[in-house]
């Protein structure tokens, strides 16, 4: 069932690791309140998750009609 399926090793892990995009330069003023620190940390994580080559990926997402 789906629950078991979720726990199976993700066969695409290796690809996920390769997908890390070039890290954008850190902003010079890194004066962090707790909340901005949280946002920076969040963005760092998301950087590592985003598909590489944003432009091509977004362009290729073409759907056929729906309701």
């Amino acid at each position: 069932m789906a629950g078991q399926e979720q726990q199976q090793p993700q066969s695409r892990d290796s690809q996920v690791e390769e997908d890390i995009p070039e890290a954008p330069p850190a902003p010079p003023e890194a004066q962090a309140s707790a909340s901005t620190e949280g946002v920076d940390d969040l963005l760092d994580e998301i950087d590592g998750v985003l598909e590489s080559n944003a432009e091509e990926f977004v362009r290729a997402f073409v759907q056929k009609g729906g309701q």
């Binding site: 073409v62 759907q63 056929k64 009609g65 729906g66 309701q67």
Partner: peptide
Amino acid sequence: TDNKSVSYGSH
């Protein structure tokens, strides 16, 4: 939406 003029629903 695919942001290219196509939309599909959640009803």
